[in-house]
Design a protein around this nucleic acid. Sequence first.
DNA 1: ACCGGAGCCTGTTAGC
DNA 2: TGCTAACAGGCTCCGG
Length: 289
Amino acid sequence: MPELPEVETTVRALREPLVGRVITGVRNDWPRHIATPTLEELQARIGGRRIEAIDRRGKYLVFRLDADETLLIHLKMTGHLSVVPSGTPPDKHTHTIFELAGGKWQVAGGEIQNPKSKIQNGELHFNDPRKFGRVYLVRDPAEVVGDLGPEPLEPEFTPAVLAERLRGHKKALKTLLLDQTFLAGVGNIYADEALFEARLHPLRPANSLSAAEIEALHAAIQYVLELGITREGASIDRYRKPDGEKGDMQNAVSVFRRTGYPCFRCGTPILRMVVGGRSTHFCPECQTR
DNA sequence: ACCGGAGCCTGTTAGC
DNA sequence: TGCTAACAGGCTCCGG
Protein backbone atom coordinates (compact mmCIF):
# COMPACT_ATOMS: atom_id res chain seq x y z
CA MET A 1 0.00 0.00 0.00
CA PRO A 2 2.25 2.75 1.11
CA GLU A 3 4.31 4.81 -1.26
CA LEU A 4 6.47 7.82 -0.47
CA PRO A 5 3.65 10.10 0.75
CA GLU A 6 2.10 7.38 2.93
CA VAL A 7 5.47 6.48 4.45
CA GLU A 8 6.30 10.16 4.99
CA THR A 9 2.94 10.67 6.72
CA THR A 10 3.65 7.68 8.94
CA VAL A 11 7.15 8.94 9.81
CA ARG A 12 5.84 12.39 10.74
CA ALA A 13 3.16 10.90 12.96
CA LEU A 14 5.59 8.58 14.76
CA ARG A 15 8.21 11.20 15.67
CA GLU A 16 6.35 12.80 18.56
CA PRO A 17 5.45 9.57 20.34
CA LEU A 18 8.71 7.74 19.62
CA VAL A 19 11.78 9.97 19.37
CA GLY A 20 13.73 9.84 22.61
CA ARG A 21 12.17 6.61 23.81
CA VAL A 22 14.03 3.43 24.65
CA ILE A 23 13.19 0.09 23.05
CA THR A 24 13.20 -2.57 25.75
CA GLY A 25 12.28 -5.64 23.75
CA VAL A 26 10.70 -7.21 20.69
CA ARG A 27 7.88 -9.72 20.46
CA ASN A 28 7.15 -11.56 17.23
CA ASP A 29 4.91 -14.38 16.05
CA TRP A 30 6.05 -14.46 12.39
CA PRO A 31 9.85 -14.65 12.27
CA ARG A 32 9.99 -13.99 8.52
CA HIS A 33 8.89 -10.44 9.35
CA ILE A 34 12.47 -9.94 10.49
CA ALA A 35 14.64 -9.77 7.37
CA THR A 36 17.91 -9.32 9.24
CA PRO A 37 19.41 -10.34 11.62
CA THR A 38 17.71 -13.35 13.21
CA LEU A 39 14.88 -12.67 15.65
CA GLU A 40 17.13 -13.78 18.51
CA GLU A 41 19.94 -11.45 17.51
CA LEU A 42 17.52 -8.58 16.95
CA GLN A 43 16.18 -9.03 20.46
CA ALA A 44 19.68 -9.13 21.89
CA ARG A 45 20.94 -6.07 20.04
CA ILE A 46 17.92 -3.78 20.24
CA GLY A 47 17.21 -3.94 23.97
CA GLY A 48 18.18 -0.64 25.62
CA ARG A 49 18.61 1.26 22.35
CA ARG A 50 17.13 4.74 22.24
CA ILE A 51 15.39 6.14 19.17
CA GLU A 52 17.30 9.28 18.26
CA ALA A 53 15.59 10.19 14.98
CA ILE A 54 13.07 8.86 12.49
CA ASP A 55 13.56 9.53 8.80
CA ARG A 56 12.43 8.13 5.46
CA ARG A 57 14.44 6.83 2.52
CA GLY A 58 12.28 5.86 -0.44
CA LYS A 59 9.56 3.69 1.04
CA TYR A 60 11.62 2.68 4.08
CA LEU A 61 11.15 4.09 7.56
CA VAL A 62 14.60 4.66 9.06
CA PHE A 63 14.88 4.70 12.86
CA ARG A 64 18.31 5.97 13.92
CA LEU A 65 19.19 4.39 17.24
CA ASP A 66 22.04 5.07 19.63
CA ALA A 67 25.12 2.81 19.63
CA ASP A 68 25.34 3.11 15.83
CA GLU A 69 22.39 0.86 15.16
CA THR A 70 19.69 1.55 12.55
CA LEU A 71 16.27 -0.04 12.44
CA LEU A 72 14.54 0.01 9.06
CA ILE A 73 10.96 -1.00 8.33
CA HIS A 74 9.35 -1.51 4.94
CA LEU A 75 5.54 -1.62 5.00
CA LYS A 76 5.21 -3.23 1.54
CA MET A 77 1.53 -3.69 0.64
CA THR A 78 -0.37 -3.77 3.92
CA GLY A 79 1.99 -2.75 6.74
CA HIS A 80 0.76 -0.35 9.42
CA LEU A 81 2.53 1.08 12.45
CA SER A 82 0.85 2.43 15.58
CA VAL A 83 1.92 3.36 19.10
CA VAL A 84 -0.33 1.96 21.82
CA PRO A 85 -0.23 1.57 25.61
CA SER A 86 1.55 -1.46 27.01
CA GLY A 87 -0.65 -4.48 27.24
CA THR A 88 -2.92 -3.51 24.36
CA PRO A 89 -4.11 -6.83 22.90
CA PRO A 90 -2.53 -7.21 19.49
CA ASP A 91 -4.73 -7.44 16.42
CA LYS A 92 -4.55 -10.85 14.77
CA HIS A 93 -2.41 -9.34 12.01
CA THR A 94 0.07 -7.66 14.35
CA HIS A 95 3.17 -9.81 14.03
CA THR A 96 5.97 -7.70 15.47
CA ILE A 97 5.80 -5.56 18.62
CA PHE A 98 8.52 -3.24 19.90
CA GLU A 99 8.23 -2.62 23.65
CA LEU A 100 9.03 0.92 24.77
CA ALA A 101 10.07 2.44 28.05
CA GLY A 102 8.75 5.80 29.22
CA GLY A 103 9.25 8.77 26.97
CA LYS A 104 12.29 10.99 27.27
CA TRP A 105 13.00 14.13 25.32
CA GLN A 106 16.44 15.38 24.54
CA VAL A 107 16.87 19.03 25.51
CA ALA A 108 19.89 21.30 25.76
CA GLY A 109 21.98 20.04 28.62
CA GLY A 110 20.38 16.65 29.01
CA GLU A 111 17.02 15.03 28.79
CA ILE A 112 13.63 15.37 30.45
CA GLN A 113 10.57 13.20 30.65
CA ASN A 114 8.39 13.74 27.59
CA PRO A 115 5.68 16.03 28.99
CA LYS A 116 3.28 15.22 26.18
CA SER A 117 3.52 11.48 26.49
CA LYS A 118 0.77 10.07 28.66
CA ILE A 119 1.95 6.62 27.66
CA GLN A 120 4.86 6.05 30.02
CA ASN A 121 5.29 2.55 28.78
CA GLY A 122 4.07 1.64 25.35
CA GLU A 123 4.42 -0.52 22.31
CA LEU A 124 4.96 0.02 18.61
CA HIS A 125 2.73 -2.45 16.80
CA PHE A 126 3.65 -3.57 13.27
CA ASN A 127 0.40 -4.83 11.78
CA ASP A 128 0.67 -6.52 8.39
CA PRO A 129 -2.12 -8.78 7.08
CA ARG A 130 -0.26 -9.92 3.97
CA LYS A 131 3.03 -10.41 5.83
CA PHE A 132 5.09 -8.82 3.03
CA GLY A 133 6.55 -6.15 5.32
CA ARG A 134 10.07 -6.47 6.68
CA VAL A 135 12.19 -5.30 9.61
CA TYR A 136 15.95 -4.78 9.37
CA LEU A 137 18.46 -3.95 12.11
CA VAL A 138 21.83 -3.01 10.66
CA ARG A 139 24.89 -1.00 11.59
CA ASP A 140 25.19 0.34 8.04
CA PRO A 141 21.87 1.37 6.45
CA ALA A 142 23.47 1.19 3.01
CA GLU A 143 23.14 -2.58 3.30
CA VAL A 144 19.38 -2.03 2.88
CA VAL A 145 18.91 1.26 1.06
CA GLY A 146 22.25 1.57 -0.70
CA ASP A 147 20.90 0.79 -4.16
CA LEU A 148 17.96 3.19 -4.10
CA GLY A 149 17.73 5.94 -6.67
CA PRO A 150 17.48 9.64 -5.81
CA GLU A 151 14.90 11.10 -3.45
CA PRO A 152 12.39 12.84 -5.72
CA LEU A 153 11.67 15.71 -3.32
CA GLU A 154 15.27 16.55 -2.47
CA PRO A 155 16.78 19.61 -4.17
CA GLU A 156 19.47 17.43 -5.73
CA PHE A 157 16.77 15.84 -7.89
CA THR A 158 16.68 18.32 -10.75
CA PRO A 159 15.32 18.03 -14.29
CA ALA A 160 18.92 17.57 -15.42
CA VAL A 161 19.35 14.61 -13.08
CA LEU A 162 16.13 13.09 -14.38
CA ALA A 163 17.24 13.68 -17.98
CA GLU A 164 20.57 11.99 -17.29
CA ARG A 165 18.88 8.97 -15.75
CA LEU A 166 16.35 8.65 -18.58
CA ARG A 167 19.03 8.79 -21.23
CA GLY A 168 20.03 5.39 -22.49
CA HIS A 169 16.88 3.70 -21.20
CA LYS A 170 14.29 2.63 -23.70
CA LYS A 171 12.02 1.02 -21.12
CA ALA A 172 8.45 2.24 -20.75
CA LEU A 173 8.16 5.26 -18.46
CA LYS A 174 5.73 3.46 -16.17
CA THR A 175 8.16 0.60 -15.65
CA LEU A 176 11.04 2.95 -14.87
CA LEU A 177 9.04 5.02 -12.38
CA LEU A 178 8.30 1.86 -10.40
CA ASP A 179 11.99 0.88 -10.38
CA GLN A 180 13.27 1.94 -6.94
CA THR A 181 16.85 2.01 -8.18
CA PHE A 182 15.80 4.55 -10.81
CA LEU A 183 13.89 6.80 -8.42
CA ALA A 184 13.03 6.07 -4.80
CA GLY A 185 9.53 6.17 -3.41
CA VAL A 186 7.19 6.29 -6.39
CA GLY A 187 4.69 3.40 -6.54
CA ASN A 188 1.70 2.49 -8.65
CA ILE A 189 -0.64 5.32 -7.63
CA TYR A 190 1.83 8.16 -7.96
CA ALA A 191 3.40 6.78 -11.14
CA ASP A 192 0.02 6.81 -12.88
CA GLU A 193 -0.85 10.22 -11.45
CA ALA A 194 2.50 11.74 -12.43
CA LEU A 195 2.26 10.46 -16.01
CA PHE A 196 -1.23 11.91 -16.30
CA GLU A 197 -0.09 15.27 -14.95
CA ALA A 198 2.80 15.28 -17.40
CA ARG A 199 0.50 14.14 -20.25
CA LEU A 200 2.85 11.28 -21.05
CA HIS A 201 1.69 7.84 -22.15
CA PRO A 202 2.79 5.09 -19.75
CA LEU A 203 4.43 3.16 -22.60
CA ARG A 204 6.54 6.05 -23.90
CA PRO A 205 10.15 4.88 -24.19
CA ALA A 206 12.25 6.72 -21.62
CA ASN A 207 14.76 7.98 -24.18
CA SER A 208 12.07 9.48 -26.43
CA LEU A 209 11.27 12.49 -24.24
CA SER A 210 11.96 16.04 -25.33
CA ALA A 211 13.55 18.47 -22.89
CA ALA A 212 10.15 20.05 -22.33
CA GLU A 213 8.60 16.65 -21.60
CA ILE A 214 11.35 15.85 -19.11
CA GLU A 215 10.70 19.17 -17.37
CA ALA A 216 6.99 18.34 -17.27
CA LEU A 217 7.62 14.85 -15.87
CA HIS A 218 9.95 16.19 -13.19
CA ALA A 219 7.41 18.81 -12.14
CA ALA A 220 4.59 16.27 -12.21
CA ILE A 221 6.45 13.77 -10.01
CA GLN A 222 7.14 16.43 -7.41
CA TYR A 223 3.63 17.84 -7.65
CA VAL A 224 1.79 14.55 -7.08
CA LEU A 225 4.11 13.45 -4.26
CA GLU A 226 3.78 16.77 -2.46
CA LEU A 227 0.03 16.68 -2.94
CA GLY A 228 0.02 13.18 -1.46
CA ILE A 229 1.95 14.35 1.59
CA THR A 230 -0.25 17.43 2.04
CA ARG A 231 -3.28 15.14 1.93
CA GLU A 232 -1.61 12.65 4.29
CA GLY A 233 -1.68 9.71 1.91
CA ALA A 234 -4.18 7.87 -0.25
CA SER A 235 -6.59 5.61 1.66
CA ILE A 236 -7.87 3.88 -1.46
CA ASP A 237 -7.61 0.43 0.04
CA ARG A 238 -6.17 -0.37 3.46
CA TYR A 239 -3.78 2.48 4.13
CA ARG A 240 -4.42 4.38 7.34
CA LYS A 241 -2.38 6.90 9.27
CA PRO A 242 -0.84 5.60 12.51
CA ASP A 243 -3.84 6.96 14.43
CA GLY A 244 -6.17 4.86 12.27
CA GLU A 245 -7.63 7.81 10.37
CA LYS A 246 -7.80 7.91 6.60
CA GLY A 247 -5.68 10.14 4.43
CA ASP A 248 -7.34 12.31 1.82
CA MET A 249 -5.34 11.76 -1.38
CA GLN A 250 -7.92 9.25 -2.67
CA ASN A 251 -10.17 12.27 -3.25
CA ALA A 252 -7.56 13.94 -5.43
CA VAL A 253 -6.53 11.22 -7.88
CA SER A 254 -7.07 11.88 -11.57
CA VAL A 255 -6.71 8.40 -13.06
CA PHE A 256 -5.78 5.75 -10.48
CA ARG A 257 -8.57 3.13 -10.35
CA ARG A 258 -10.86 5.46 -12.30
CA THR A 259 -11.23 3.00 -15.20
CA GLY A 260 -14.26 3.90 -17.29
CA TYR A 261 -14.88 7.22 -15.56
CA PRO A 262 -14.45 10.42 -17.57
CA CYS A 263 -11.09 12.14 -17.65
CA PHE A 264 -11.35 15.33 -15.59
CA ARG A 265 -9.57 17.20 -18.37
CA CYS A 266 -11.26 15.97 -21.57
CA GLY A 267 -14.09 13.65 -20.60
CA THR A 268 -12.68 10.59 -22.40
CA PRO A 269 -13.13 7.39 -20.36
CA ILE A 270 -10.01 6.41 -18.42
CA LEU A 271 -8.44 3.16 -19.62
CA ARG A 272 -6.70 0.40 -17.69
CA MET A 273 -3.86 -1.66 -19.09
CA VAL A 274 -1.20 -3.88 -17.55
CA VAL A 275 2.39 -2.66 -17.73
CA GLY A 276 5.15 -4.62 -16.04
CA GLY A 277 2.50 -6.72 -14.37
CA ARG A 278 0.91 -3.73 -12.70
CA SER A 279 -2.45 -2.05 -13.28
CA THR A 280 -1.92 1.14 -15.18
CA HIS A 281 -4.56 3.84 -15.58
CA PHE A 282 -4.40 6.62 -18.14
CA CYS A 283 -6.36 8.92 -20.42
CA PRO A 284 -5.93 7.78 -24.04
CA GLU A 285 -6.71 11.28 -25.26
CA CYS A 286 -4.54 13.43 -22.98
CA GLN A 287 -1.62 11.02 -22.73
CA THR A 288 -0.53 10.41 -26.28
CA ARG A 289 2.36 8.27 -27.37
C1' DA B 1 19.35 -5.80 -21.39
C1' DC B 2 14.63 -6.69 -21.17
C1' DC B 3 10.15 -8.97 -20.38
C1' DG B 4 6.75 -11.98 -18.50
C1' DG B 5 5.34 -14.93 -14.97
C1' DA B 6 5.47 -17.00 -10.48
C1' DG B 7 5.90 -16.43 -5.71
C1' DC B 8 5.30 -14.39 -1.19
C1' DC B 9 0.38 -13.76 1.89
C1' DT B 10 -4.45 -12.61 3.25
C1' DG B 11 -8.48 -10.06 2.48
C1' DT B 12 -11.92 -7.89 -0.40
C1' DT B 13 -14.70 -7.51 -4.25
C1' DA B 14 -16.74 -8.56 -8.80
C1' DG B 15 -19.16 -11.82 -11.29
C1' DC B 16 -21.92 -15.78 -11.92
C1' DT C 1 -26.87 -15.84 -0.55
C1' DG C 2 -22.86 -18.60 -1.80
C1' DC C 3 -19.03 -19.87 -4.36
C1' DT C 4 -15.05 -18.81 -7.27
C1' DA C 5 -11.83 -16.01 -9.52
C1' DA C 6 -9.57 -11.91 -9.90
C1' DC C 7 -7.29 -8.39 -7.87
C1' DA C 8 -4.53 -5.63 -4.46
C1' DG C 9 -0.67 0.66 -3.15
C1' DG C 10 5.68 -4.01 -3.31
C1' DC C 11 9.39 -6.44 -4.61
C1' DT C 12 12.38 -10.55 -5.86
C1' DC C 13 13.67 -14.45 -8.47
C1' DC C 14 13.90 -17.25 -12.52
C1' DG C 15 13.75 -18.56 -17.29
C1' DG C 16 13.58 -17.30 -22.07
